[in-house]
Nucleic acid binder design. Structure first.
Lengths: 342, 342
DNA sequence: TTGAAAGCGCTAACAC
DNA sequence: GTGTTAGCGCTTTCAA
C-alpha cells in the first residue's frame, strides 16, 4: 500500500555518484559527464525513479501548475477552452489544476476558491467567465502570481484580460440584421453582471441606433438554456413579436430556436431571424445552422498562454489587455439579403 | 515580482510561539491551547499567511490532488463528468489535475501522461474513456496510487472500474426497436477499441437475436461527429436502407439525425427510428428529442469518488468494479408502439 | 500543552 | 565535473 518511494538518493547510491549529480542530471541535464549520466540513467531506470516535482517546486518556487477557475461547462464554449488550454499548457510542461466555481459567479466564492488555488503555489491563474475582488487581485499580485481573465473584462489594472471584440461583434450583428431589412429587434440578455453581456448588448444597440433603429423587446436568459427558453416564450407570445432576435450566446440561442420552432411553430428565418455569439460546435450542426459571431478559442488560448508565460518567465509582470477580432459567420438562421429590387 | 512568501515561521515569531505550534494549529487544529490559538490566528491574518500545501504533502505523502485523464471533451458527456467530479472532489478538499490525452486514446500516450501525473504525487488517478498498459497499472499499484477507469472496462485486476450497464442498455434498445415493429436494424459503431462500443454492440445484437432478428447494416463512426455523418451517408444511401438505427452514443446520433433529415430528407421517426446512448443535455433539446439510454453521471461520479476515497483513506486497496444501472428514455425519435390491431 | 530537532526529496551555492 | 552543505516550508517524534 504505502508506495515504495524511490528517491534521488537511492539512484545515487546505485549509480555510485552523489545525490546532487542525480539532481543535476534531471534538472539542468548537462551539468554532468556523459559517463556519469549513463550510470544515473541506468540506475534510475532499474529503480523506476522519477523526480518528485512537488519537492522540486518547494525549492524552485515554481510548481508548473496553472489554476483554472471555470464556472459552467454547460455552455459548450468552455469545454473547448479547458481542452485547448490544458493541451497547450501540457505542451509547455505545465498542468492545469481545475476549480469549479458556483455558476452564480459570486465574487466571494471566486475569492475563496482563488485562495485555495494559491495554497497550491500555482504559477498563474486563469479565471474563465469569472471576476474577483480587488483585494484578492492585490494579494495575487503581491505573491507574484499572474492572473488572466478569460472572456471577461474588469477594470483592475493588475489583471490581464483576454477577450474578443464583444462590442464590435454586437454591432456587426445589428448591422447584418438591419441590412436584411428587419424592423423589430429583440435581444435576449445573458447574466447582467457579465462584461460580455454588457458589451455585446451595447454594441448591438449602437449598431441599431446608427441606422435609426432601436430595440423592440428585451428579456434576460442569464446564459442558461432553461431561462432562455422562458425568455423566448415571453418575448414571442403576444400580438406583436420581433422579426429578428440577437441572443447573447449560442447556447441560449439554441434554446430560443427550439421554442420558436417546436413550441410556437415559427419558421426560421422566414418568420424570425436568429443570431447568436461564440460559434460553438452545435452552431454548425444542420439542426441549428446558426448565424453567429465567431470567437476563436485557439486564438484566445494562445494569447492567454502568452500572457501567462510572459509573467512567469520574463521580468514581465505588466498586465496585458488583449482584445481579439472575431468575425461574422452567416448560416441559415438569417434570411438572405433581399435583392435590391424595389 | 518575487512574491513575499509568508511562512509559519513568520507567524510564529509574530505570535510569540514556536513554529511547530503554528503547524499544529493548522494541521490537527486542536493540539494547541485556546490562548495560543488566538494569537496564531491573529498573527496569520495580519500577515496573510496560508499553509503551503506542497510543503505539507512532501512530508505527509498526500497531495490532495487527483489526476484526471480525459480524451475528448467534444462529446458532451465528458464536460459533465469533469464538472461533477471536480466539484465533488473539491467538497472533500481534493483538487483535480487535468491531463488531456490525444483523442486516439493510444495506450502509449496514456502511459506517458500517467507517468507525468505520478510525478505530481497525486493521490489517485481517474482515466475517463482511456485505458492503460498493464506495466503502468502495476507501477501505480506499487506506488500505492489507486486508478479508477471511468466508463471503460479493462481486465487488469489492479484497476477499479466504474461503468454503466452497456450490455444491458444495448439489449434494451434492441428490444424497444423490435417491439416497435422494426425489421431492418442499422448500427453505427464507436471507436472499436473501446469497451463501451463492444458491450453496447454485443448487447444490441443479443437483443435482436433473442427475437430472431439480426443486424442489417453496420458502419463505424469512431465516436466523432464528422465520421458519424459519413457513416450515416454510407448506410442510408442506396436502394435498401435500415428502418431503425442504434448509434453508439448520443454525440454521433446527432450527426446521424442531421444527415437523415437535412441531407437525405428522411423523417424521424416516420421513415427511420434513431436511438442513442448517454442522454447528454442536447438529447433533451426539442431539435433532437432523442430516445436514448441514460447513464447517470452523478451516480457514476459518486461511485468513482467512493472508490477513490476508500483507497486513499481506508486500508482499502482492493479494486472495485462497479456497474451501474441505466434506463431507457423514450422521446421523439422512435415511433409510438403500434396499436395491437392485426 | 509546548518547543527543539530531525527530515520529507529536492535544488543551488560553494569548494574542490 | 563533482561532492558537500545548507536549506525550501512543513509535519512529527521526542522531551520537557
Amino acid at each position: 500500500m504505502a508506495g515504495e518511494r524511490v528517491t534521488s538518493n537511492d539512484v545515487a547510491r546505485l549509480a555510485g555518484v552523489s545525490q546532487s549529480a542525480v539532481s543535476r542530471y534531471y534538472s539542468t541535464g548537462n551539468l554532468v559527464s556523459t559517463k556519469a549520466g549513463e550510470k544515473i540513467k541506468q540506475a534510475a531506470e532499474q529503480l523506476g525513479y522519477r523526480p518528485n516535482v512537488l519537492a522540486r517546486s518547494l525549492i524552485t518556487g515554481r510548481s508548473r501548475m496553472i489554476g483554472l477557475v471555470v464556472a459552467y461547462l454547460e455552455n459548450y464554449f468552455y469545454p473547448e477552452v479547458v481542452e485547448r488550454l490544458s493541451k497547450a499548457l501540457q505542451d509547455q510542461g505545465y498542468h492545469v489544476l481545475v476549480f469549479i466555481s458556483s455558476p452564480a459567479s459570486v465574487v466571494e466564492n471566486v475569492d475563496q476558491i482563488t485562495q485555495e488555488i494559491l495554497d497550491y503555489q500555482v504559477d498563474g491563474i486563469v479565471l474563465a467567465s469569472a471576476t474577483m475582488s480587488s483585494e484578492l487581485a492585490a494579494r495575487c499580485h503581491a505573491h507574484g502570481v499572474p492572473i488572466v481573465l478569460f472572456n471577461r473584462l474588469q477594470d483592475d489594472p493588475r489583471l490581464s484580460t483576454v477577450t474578443s471584440d464583444n462590442h464590435g461583434g454586437g454591432r456587426k450583428l445589428a448591422e447584418l440584421l438591419v441590412s436584411l431589412g428587419h424592423e423589430r429587434f429583440g435581444y435576449i440578455a445573458g447574466y447582467e453582471g457579465a462584461s460580455t453581456q454588457r458589451d455585446r448588448e451595447a454594441g448591438f444597440r449602437e449598431g441599431l441606433e446608427a441606422s435609426g433603429h432601436r430595440l423592440f423587446a428585451r428579456e434576460v436568459g442569464n446564459f442558461r438554456y432553461d431561462e432562455a427558453q422562458a425568455a423566448a416564450r415571453r418575448m414571442f407570445t403576444g400580438p406583436e413579436r420581433p422579426d429578428a432576435v440577437f441572443v447573447c450566446n449560442d447556447h441560449m440561442a439554441f434554446a430560443v430556436m427550439d421554442v420558436l420552432r417546436y413550441e410556437l411553430g415559427l419558421r426560421i428565418p422566414d418568420d424570425v431571424s436568429v443570431v447568436g455569439f461564440d460559434d460553438v460546435p452545435p452552431a454548425r450542426w444542420p439542426a441549428y445552422s446558426l448565424t453567429t459571431f465567431r470567437q476563436d478559442v485557439d486564438d484566445m488560448v494562445a494569447e492567454t498562454l502568452r500572457t501567462l508565460m510572459e509573467s512567469v518567465n520574463g521580468a514581465g509582470g505588466v498586465p496585458r489587455r488583449v482584445v481579439l477580432d472575431g468575425f461574422l459567420v452567416q448560416r441559415a438562421t438569417t434570411r438572405r439579403a433581399p435583392t435590391s429590387a424595389t
